[in-house]
């Protein structure tokens, strides 16, 4: 199907130590702002923008990102992804990412806010070669409704598939349907309202990094719950249940900082947007 509400395609390469777009194309309700270089590392940062301000009934978005060997990219959004009510058909977003050996992609979108009766499906497919690094976070909020009721959305479904050298290496499938389950209780959200996920794939992953991350997260004193584990491929995943976006963002920022410092001896730039 090609009837996209918004489509965006971005091919990036390393040109003399600086990452630049060799091709950038977007159409409809999806665009990128001009590239930003936060420091002199050559890493480029793109902010994704939904000019419509939110996803509507039946909207379909597609992003294709490819990063050549040696290119380094941060991809983020300008603000939270809002999915408004979808009375007829679900809002859908798919992202296909290709990472060549020696490339780095940090994909750090803002939280997802699904409105009352919204049905949203998101699919991320990442094809990477050994030697590439992929850092991904997402945050799922309890959504928004006029009377302040939490989890009033219909369905939120997030699928992430990561292929390493052509073989499926990570498969993550979250589908929350608040109407069907008592979602706040044991097994689901455990009494919390926000869910954060971080997935990192890189051959540089080792157990001492996991130990360091674990110790660091544990120092956080606010009420939250987390799990951290090694992936079947070289990499790690972190899940956080908390009561606010800010807390999850802070923890992921700290993790991101620690990972960048130990692998690249760099400090991530602030992505302040407001």
């Amino acid at each position: 199907m090609s009837n996209w509400t918004g489509i965006l395609s971005l091919d990036l390469e390393n040109r003399n130590g600086k990452t630049v777009a060799k091709r950038a194309y977007f159409q409809g309700a999806l665009k990128v702002m001009r590239p930003i270089y936060h420091d002199d590392s050559g890493q480029v940062c793109y902010y994704l923008l939904n000019p419509g301000g939110g996803y509507l009934d039946g909207d379909r978005y597609r992003m294709e990102i490819s990063v050549d060997a040696g290119a380094e990219v941060i991809l983020t959004t300008q603000s939270a992804t809002k999915v408004y009510k979808t009375p007829k058909s679900l809002a859908y977003q798919e992202t296909e990412i290709t990472l060549k050996k020696g490339s780095l992609l940090e994909y750090l979108p803002d939280p997802l806010i699904a409105y009352q009766n919204a049905h949203y499906k998101q699919k991320n497919v990442i094809h990477m070669e050994t030697g590439a690094t992929f850092i991904y976070t997402d945050i799922l909020t309890p959504g928004w409704s006029p009377n302040g009721e939490k989890f009033s959305y219909n369905t939120v479904q997030l699928v992430t598939e990561i292929y390493l050298d052509g073989q499926l290496g990570v498969f993550d499938h979250i589908k929350l349907t608040p109407g069907k389950h008592s979602i706040s209780g044991i097994g689901f959200m455990e009494g919390y309202t926000h869910l954060g996920s971080m997935i990192v794939v890189s051959e540089l992953t080792n157990n001492s990094l996991l130990d360091e991350l674990y110790e660091m997260i544990q120092e956080e004193s606010t009420d939250f719950k987390f799990g951290l584990s090694r992936l079947p491929v070289s990499g790690l995943s972190i899940r956080i249940l908390a009561h606010s976006t800010q807390l999850i963002e802070r923890i992921f920022d700290n993790c991101h900082r620690l990972i960048k410092k130990s692998w690249f001896e760099t400090v991530p730039s602030s992505l302040r947007k407001y």
């Binding site: 498969f171 993550d172 499938h173 979250i174 589908k175 044991i186 097994g187 689901f188 959200m189 455990e190 869910l195 674990y214 719950k225 987390f226 799990g227 951290l228 584990s229 899940r239 249940l241």
Partner: peptide
């Protein structure tokens, strides 16, 4: 529908490692 996880259950399985 394959592989749908419940965050809390999964988190408790990760926590067990420590």
């Amino acid at each position: 529908d394959f592989g749908i996880v419940s965050p809390g259950l999964e988190l408790s399985q990760m926590k067990h490692e420590r």
